[in-house]
Amino acid sequence: MIIDELEKRLRPVEKKLPPYPPKVITLASGEKMVVRQATRDDGPVLLETVRPLIDVERDFYDVVAARVYSELLGWYRYRVADEYCLVGTIDGVIASLVNGRTVNETTGMSYHTITIKRGLRCGAQMFAAKMEYHFEYLKQKEVLIVAESPIGYKRWMIEYQLEARPQVQHELGGVPTHVLTEPLYQAAKPRLVTGQRPVSPQLLATADEFIAPSEYPQIPGFKR
């Protein structure tokens, strides 16, 4: 591949991250949420999914959506190094997504969790999937985490009993950093991490092409 010399200097050096094997979680509604790792090709539909939420003030959707949008766009256009995105879909429609990146071999950095489908704790499952990726597949020792909404704070900090490490700077701008260490992850895992593998080929095929939601509970009367 020929890359422009200047572009080459601007692009981060990227490692190839070990893949996250897809899994399926049966939600309380009986619906099957397939969780698979997004590829760069999925970029446009992910951005399209997140964009409407930038105007939703409630529960800090605006802050989180604007940041996720910029993170995914940065990744799509080669301006963030070693970023990943895991996506939860129901019948192909995006229910929730999480992203983050690796800082180095042993340390990961959690970016955001954004959930469109409400009331089924999809966000909690996706956050857990993200931690699973860092510890079980990227084989890291700890993940740096910040929370930007009160719900996020309570949920992640208390359920996982995260360690406060305010002296460490997270990329998300000075919000106090918390850390999920491997022992804390292992302690939380039985209660918080679930999902079945392998996913049957038919079910996995539903998530081949992500579909942007046509309805947002956060935006009454939404039309794309």
Binding site: I25, T26, L27, S29, R191, T194, G195
Partner: peptide, 22 residues
């Protein structure tokens, strides 16, 4: 408030139920 049917199979006794319905 919650107009969302749930299924017995999903909230009880399947491998995901302990996490889905903690």
């Amino acid at each position: 408030h919650v107009r969302l049917p749930v299924t017995l199979e999903a909230i009880y006794g399947n491998p995901d139920a302990n996490v889905i319905n903690p």
